[in-house]
Amino acid sequence: MSAYSFAYLDDQTKRMIRRAILKALAIPGYQVPFASREMPMPYGWGTGGVQVTAAVLTPNDCLKVIDQGADDTTNAVSIRAFFAKTAGVATTTRTKEATVIQTRHRIPETALSEDQILVYQVPIPEPLRFLEPRETETRRMHALEDYGLMHVKLYEDIARHGHIATAYAYPVMVEGRYVMDPSPIPKFDNPKLSGNPAIQLFGAGREQRIYALPPWCEVASLDFEDHPFYPSKADAACGLCGAEDSYLDEVIVDDAGGRIFVCSDTDYCEDRQAQGHRGKDAA
């Protein structure tokens, strides 16, 4: 163990990242540039999230890693193993026991508390990127609160599809100031961003940006008066635990087109099953 710094990163790197995190927390929704390091994994696998997690992790922490809500997918398992090895911290799959949760594209169904930190992996931090390719221009737009373009995107959605068809990475307004990309979480999770007691940190490794939502921060999803924001989900109950309030994945179960809906948050689903809840497809 002594051959490594605690949690992989060297002291100077951690210092640099922590400064970026503090700045990000001081200006909710603002993208702070940071000198992202090479990590022992490819870009797109959570290099930003891993660096943020490494910078906030302490020896007494208990780490949970989820990928699309699941604790048992490749990405989640390998990042959990990475920190178990390089930091020697306890790991868990249970949302309630974790103090640091690194997540890819979901917010856990179980309500978070003030002593938890949620770390998001972010592929493209700039919400205006696909509307305005120039970084100089998007930065100026953020500085001047010039956000008309963001609504143009939503307008185009309604004009083409009859409703706002953006279903993930749904843009939000933070504390009435910065428009922010909440990472590709389903818009079902957007309401959980607002007034959340946990600290929410966003790390984009390839794009070298960190941004954050401090606890109890006000986050509003952008919409139109006559087309209000709606946190949509599949119109079904979980086939395993019967939950009607959780975000569902559609799973194909045989070659005959059979399919079931199950909770995307595996911990939440197992928890409910342990309490005796059963869905219609439960074995």
Binding site: Y155, F224, H227
Partner: peptide, 18 residues
Amino acid sequence: SAGGNVGERLMAVGARNY
């Protein structure tokens, strides 16, 4: 779209009714 082009300035000054 043409409509989006015309609407951009309206939305930039705060129009929020589709």
